[in-house]
Design a binder for these strands. Structure first.
Length: 832
DNA sequence: CTTGTCCA
């Protein structure tokens, strides 16, 4: 068996073997290539002679024959092609093939006759034999020393990849890591690792310090070597900043963390002084930035300043935006076109936005950001005499309004709500994932008159810098988002800081248009946003209720609520259970299993089902997409339904297949792609961002631990458009609301405000950090200090329910089915 | 402990 196949376990994987006819495209900054391949062998259902193969490849020789592993993809623009995840050069196997290979361009000076002589002497195993012992060539009289060297060199080079992979294996890298390391360094792999194993920390994701340090030890790098200490410092800085979302840290914390990293990797005592010395050296070398006692990751320091410069530059252009038309009059025309009436603040936002070089539109869910966004687009087009018909534009004259968002799903939603083309920010900027995070490479400037970015709260410091830097002079920018929702995955809190600086014109929408009057969900959301839990938090309301229970009772409580709701006509699509984490008794995985049994059981045991990763899938299951498939218009976070399951023996490729329907289109997933989906009856709060559900069920228990955060709770409850059912421990809700997330350490706000950095010591900073957390709130602590009893005051609360005065929701009553778990919601059905 | 993006 081929070494690679063994390594990557690729038994029934689709492959294509063929010669390279042309290299259509190669990205100079990474290994991405588009190749035209003349097929000689394949196990795919593909009848043409040629196919386009895309992927990351090292050196690709035209005319050479390669074996590509991957899958067929129907690209909307380029048709059927093969996306390859790994490949290797094919060794010639037949005698004729071998002769052809040896007499080819690769071996200068070797003709057909010489090649024949080599194969005559060494047989079909010639290549392996030369590899094993180059001296076997001496027996061939046609070859002089120079030709022998050429042959050996070329053969060893193409054998290099296998050697490198074996080498990586010996260093203890599994197939996955070995592969990504090889993809990055190619033939230089072993050289780079031997020179400085710590380089892996900078270049390869998922390589930890211990791993790199183990190799370093193996090749004799001493425990107190400056190289090792420096690597540990930079690694610790990254860990500290990225785990908290901060853009800087303090020397003391960095020192402590570094020593911890070093000493937990090798048992060797490290002097704090030597770490401190190396921190100073790194600052001198400009690999670490020190500013007013703060230590920054270089790229983040640059990005904060970059954003600041861009913003200031835009603001200087304020006076250049002038319209001859009467804007108020034009807004009236827009209102007429859409047949709506904007609220006062909405009107003001539209007016300000078209007149500002950069403008922030913010507001919670349901406040009409989308409506205003559409108004701004229409008014902008009106004022500038632009057509909004995409057909009127060409490649030379591109559409002048750019729409983008940090996630594929948000971009898709933008496209649906505006009818205009939109894309991810990455795609807009032409980022391809191989850039370093600093984005220090040259990038293209955008063209157009207006750039609109939605879900700005999810844009991190690096991306914001790259985006704003690509904005040309004169292009207006509109940033839209909700600063209280989940922050970016990457470091920083750009939207928050821009708003806090008060330098950028902005408008916050407060009026709720989505929910009807008297929604207590919105009131609750407002309190949570401000770090409070309202006094009536535990009392059943018309549109929400609370079940007090422990971690281990969550499953049973939710089972009963959902069973009841289902009987009332709520479907799996109407009800969404949200949890912050996957594992544990009250985790997403456990709840999904239970919910699947309610909504889509296999009672008879005779239904078609397939299992994967401890999960069972059946037709009718509600599933969640976990990655982007832009060509299918399906994105990370989209929900669909399984509409078909085909067992391996019934499919052409002999692999199990699942067909999932999303809104309009159906997508087929082979077993190898099943890790791209999961059950969706319960999903993570993160994945729910950007969606809305009639009924949201939200468990909160202390077991969720570090996931108890205000932004998560706020995001979760604001997903509910009609009903919200909370369950769990009141103390857990309390904790989550107390834990503010908008306390990432950043200096963007100060930079934009142009304030002299006040010299703060770490203790000062800690003090400010503490004040960010609101003072203890009386109503909450009084609720949480004692065992909670849910009581309903008959006089004030829903007397129409005719409930007894003392009505306690306890788990035993729920268990005995003495109470209706949808208490207080009698009149509510999904169809009202 | 969870979360995002990428190529003619």
């Amino acid at each position: 068996m081929d070494i690679q196949e063994e390594l990557f376990d690729a038994s029934a994987e689709p492959y294509i073997v063929g010669g390279i006819k042309a290299v259509f495209y190669q990205n100079p900054s990474n290994f991405y290539k588009v190749l035209l391949v003349q097929i000689t062998e394949t196990n795919c259902d593909y009848k043409e002679q040629e196919i386009v193969v895309t992927g990351s490849f090292g050196q690709i020789q035209e005319e050479e024959v390669y074996r590509f592993y991957g899958k067929l993809v129907d690209h909307p623009k380029f048709g059927m092609q093969f996306t390859s995840t790994r490949y290797h050069q094919e060794k010639p196997t037949s005698i004729e093939g071998l002769i052809h290979y040896l007499s080819g361009d690769k071996f200068p000076g070797i003709g057909e006759k010489t090649a024949e002589a080599i194969v005559d002497a060494l047989g079909e195993e010639a290549i392996d034999r030369i590899n094993a012992d180059p001296d076997v060539l001496v027996q061939i009289p046609q070859l002089n020393q120079k030709k022998r060297d050429t042959i050996v060199e070329v053969i060893q080079q193409s054998n290099g990849m296998e050697k490198i992979i074996i080498g990586l294996n010996q260093y203890g890298f599994g197939s996955q890591l070995a592969y990504s390391i090889y993809q990055t360094y190619q033939e230089k792999t072993l050289e780079i690792i031997q020179e400085n194993p710590y380089q892996l920390l900078e270049d390869i994701e998922h390589v930890g310090f211990k791993k790199a340090d183990a190799i370093a030890e193996q090749i004799g790098i001493k425990a107190d070597s400056p190289m090792r200490i420096k690597a540990a410092i930079l690694f610790s800085l990254n860990e500290l900043c990225l785990s908290n979302g901060d853009t800087y840290t303090y020397a003391e914390q960095l020192l402590t963390k570094t020593i911890e990293v070093l000493e937990s990797s090798r048992s060797f005592l490290i002097e704090p002084e030597s770490v401190a010395d190396e921190i100073v050296h790194l600052i001198d070398e400009n690999k670490l930035i020190e500013d007013n006692g703060k230590l920054y990751i270089r790229s983040l320091y640059a990005a904060e300043w970059g954003i600041t410069a861009s913003i200031h530059h835009m603001l200087e252009n304020s006076s250049k935006i002038k319209y001859s038309q009467d804007i108020d009059k034009e807004i009236k025309i827009v209102e007429k076109t859409f047949n709506i009436q904007y609220g006062k603040s909405q009107k003001e936002a539209i007016k300000k936005a078209v007149q500002s070089p950069i403008f922030i539109l913010t507001g919670g869910p349901g406040t009409g950001k989308t409506t205003v966004l559409n108004g701004i687009v229409t008014l902008y087009a009106e004022l500038n005499g632009l057509s909004l018909d995409v057909e009127d534009y060409t490649e030379e004259k591109p559409f002048p309004i750019l729409l983008a968002a940090p996630t594929g799903r948000a971009a898709k939603k933008m496209n649906e709500s505006t009818g205009l083309p939109s894309s991810t920010i990455h795609r807009l900027l032409g980022l391809n994932g191989s850039e370093n995070q600093a984005g220090e490479q040259a990038e293209k400037e955008l063209s157009g008159g207006l750039l609109i970015v939605d879900e700005m709260s999810m844009v991190d410091t690096w991306l914001a810098n790259q985006l704003l830097r690509a904005v040309p002079s004169g292009m207006q920018v509109l940033l839209v988002g909700d600063k209280d929702q989940l922050p970016s995955v990457g470091p920083g809190q750009v939207l928050h800081d821009l708003l806090a600086s008060q330098k950028v014109p902005s408008m916050e929408l407060n009026e709720i248009y989505r929910q009807g009057d008297g929604s207590s969900i919105i009131t609750l959301a407002h309190s949570i946003k401000n770090g409070e839990l309202p006094a009536d938090f535990l009392k059943p309301q018309r549109d929400r209720s609370f079940f007090n229970c422990s971690t281990f009772q969550i499953e049973e409580v939710i089972r009963q609520v959902v069973t009841k709701a289902k009987a009332k006509g709520f479907t799996a699509q109407d009800i969404q259970v949200l949890a912050p984490m996957y594992r544990g008794p009250a985790g997403i995985d456990a709840l999904n299993k239970m919910l699947q049994d309610i909504f889509n059981p296999n009672d008879t045991g005779r239904r078609k089902e397939v299992s994967f990763n401890n999960k069972v899938y059946r037709i009718g299951d509600k599933v969640l997409q976990l990655v982007n498939y832009p060509e299918m218009n399906v994105f990370n976070g989209d929900m669909g339904e399984i509409v078909g399951i085909t067992y391996a023996k019934e499919t052409e490729d002999k692999v199990d297949e699942i067909v999932i329907r999303f809104d309009a289109n159906e997508v087929t997933y082979k077993r190898s792609e099943w890790n791209k989906i999961t059950l969706a009856y319960c999903c993570s709060i993160h994945k729910s961002q950007g969606s809305e559900f009639k009924m949201v069920i939200l468990p909160m228990v202390k077991n969720y631990h570090r996931m108890l955060r205000r932004d998560l709770t706020y995001t979760a409850i604001t997903r509910a458009s009609e009903l919200l059912i909370l369950c769990g421990e009141p103390q857990a809700f309390h904790e989550s609301v107390m834990k503010s997330s908008a306390d990432r350490l950043t200096t963007l706000k100060e930079r934009i405000m142009g304030e002299e950095e006040s010299i703060k010591s770490p203790t000062d900073e800690n003090a400010t950090k503490i004040t960010v957390v609101p003072e203890s709130k009386e109503p909450v602590s009084s609720v949480t200090d004692q065992p909670v009893q849910l009581s309903m005051d008959q006089e004030n609360e829903s007397p129409q329910n005719g409930l007894p005065k003392e009505y306690k929701l306890t788990i035993s009553k729920v268990n005995n089915e003495e109470v209706d778990p949808m208490i207080g919601m009698e009149g509510v059905t999904p169809y009202q």
